[in-house]
Write a protein that binds this DNA or RNA. Structure first.
Lengths: 345, 345
DNA sequence: GTGAAAGCGCTAACAT
DNA sequence: ATGTTAGCGCTTTCAC
């Protein structure tokens, strides 16, 4: 049994010595930088392979880049976010960049801890998905490191933005239900207290889209919004409230698939059937919605595209930190399934 | 509009100057190291607060620790893993350590990339959840950095291990179904080719547990295993095959909840009902299983406990890299729900 | 208990 | 095109 003495890590000096060149030369090859002849490159690469050298990102970061992109996801459990993540990693797979994720964070305090941790670890760029932090914090982050905010509508000169058009998405659902013949279409929203967030967050936009669409269809009188939260419990509570109405809605537009789950649970508990007694629609087109026995009508946000665009903007900004900030808005699509049908009345 | 010139980051030198002490002193305070008087500590802390100083983890890593723990999850989409993650982060919340996750990786190549990236970024410790990499790779990783492997049964002197007793878990399900009166209990497993993994991976242990339990109950003749994969599609395909049997099983033990989802989908498609025509059980006790309208009998792995134990072992090993390696095995519990009932024949 | 000074592994100026 | 040298921000000897 030999003692598990970890052999000192191979450094750039070892490579330089082995290849009989300077460390600068090795560094240039590593970064594909200008000023190294093809022969030099070949010689260095061979030495790197022979010694199994890998640069230490922390050391690189002290002078240049760490080749690390940080992604902050608000909730690992929400099955929509992996789509965005796939777009990000897929786009970065052929580059030298490595993606690391912050652990699920709910609330401003957690977000601050994660964003600061990422900055302190010298990350080259950040992708923040649906952050709840106040705008000034985001701008402070973006000042420290190139940042793209995904899924939040407010725009800032400090960072780039990628969003889905949530107003349009909500209109898709309302239009779909109205076309089926529904008039009493209720909406369950995520209650927002913060004034900035009540404009910038997707949930607020969806609620707004619902209102706009109802009015446009002349259904002003039928507008019925319940404020709970974007959780399964929130959906359950909201549905309980709606089912207790003297005149029940014939359709419910839940602001997220996870909310629709709670609605379905409450409906099942009340001994009612979907879509026979009540049509239910969600938002996000999660795997849950696609699941056969559930078959929930939903809105697809093209998460992969969002991730791809976020990376594109981020790499652009890493290359040129002074370019004017951009905002990309993607169009959602309706995914009708069996949870919505004509009302039976 | 002021130009977004990022003001140079506050360094340990600034703090030292501001507090009128040496950088060594500041460093000692940061690390709660020996050799600083209470007055010194107070003075330094005040300077840190006043300047809003945060140490640069990358720079710290070059000499000491980065205070970063890397967690590698095989698949973000599997709703079981967040439990483990919560255990890890919950345990680390009050420490100086920060958790960063590797993005979902399927396959050895991806795992190698992520583990190497974590090592190269100077992480102080790694938690690898259900890795599929060959043992030698894991041991190489563990030689470079303290490592805990979670959810994989093989044990190694190089790393610590935390697992659920999957054999016992499978026995819980089989015992439960048998107690309900089932005899033709089929199992859908994840097909394993690699010889090491066919011993070490949880899926293999569950299949083994199924076989052992069936034999112990004298149901040798009824043993019926279908090999697909731990995916929804795998469950769907497996169920198709089982439903096509001349004599159908009365119960199916799917190796994971996600597999059970596929089974439910196939059963619904065949116009059969659960548990009327077929009892279905899963494994992992995911939120999906707990969802009211589904109500899937499952096995709870105490993921939070697994994460907690992993962190405990990891911190121990960071403190003493030479302590003998440990293996913690946790006991799963049965969570009976409405997807299993007496057979109707 | 305190501080000066020497690195950690790498990149960026600056020679040559 | 190549090599020399001076740091990046911290921790760690090792003096005092």
């Amino acid at each position: 049994m030999e003692p598990p003495v970890s052999p000192r890590r191979v450094t750039i000096v070892d490579v330089a010595r082995h290849a009989q060149v300077s460390t600068t030369a090795v560094s240039k090859v590593l970064r594909n930088a200008y000023g190294a002849s093809p022969e030099m490159r070949a010689k260095v690469r061979r030495a790197i392979d022979e010694l199994g050298y890998r640069p230490l990102a922390a050391a690189r970061g002290l002078r240049g880049q760490t080749y690390t992109i940080g992604v902050m996801l608000p909730d690992i459990r929400n099955p929509f976010f992996p789509e965005i993540l796939d777009g990000v990693t897929g786009c970065l797979a052929d580059t030298d960049y490595q993606v690391l994720l912050g652990p699920g964070c709910n609330g401003e305090k957690e977000e601050a801890r994660v964003t600061e941790a990422m900055i302190d670890r010298g990350m080259d760029g950040l992708v923040l998905v649906a952050p709840v932090s106040p705008r000034p914090h985001l701008e402070r982050v973006a000042t420290a490191v190139p940042t793209v905010v995904v899924g939040r509508h407010g725009h800032s000169p400090a960072y780039d933005t990628v969003t889905d058009d949530d107003v349009a998405g909500a209109a898709l659902i309302v239009g779909h239900l109205a076309a089926l013949g529904h008039r009493r279409i209720a909406h369950i929203e995520h209650h927002e207290t913060d004034p900035t967030r009540s404009v910038e967050m997707p949930n607020a936009q969806r609620a707004d889209g619902y209102l706009q669409a109802m009015r446009k269809l002349g259904l002003d009188e039928e507008i019925d919004v319940v404020s709970t939260s974007y959780t399964q419990q929130g959906g359950y509570d909201g549905a309980k409230e709606l089912l207790a109405r003297p005149v029940r809605p014939t359709a419910v537009f839940a602001g997220a698939d996870i909310v629709a789950m709670g609605v379905l649970e409450a409906v099942a508990e009340a001994g009612l059937s979907v879509p026979g007694d009540l049509s239910v629609a969600g938002y996000d087109n999660t795997t849950f919605a696609a699941f056969g026995p559930i078959s929930l009508t939903s809105v697809d946000q093209a998460g992969y595209e969002m991730g791809k665009n976020a990376v594109r903007l981020l790499l652009e900004r890493i290359a040129d930190r002074d370019r004017p900030s951009a905002k990309v808005t993607l169009s959602p699509t309706l995914v009708p399934r069996r949870s919505t049908a004509q009302p039976s009345y």
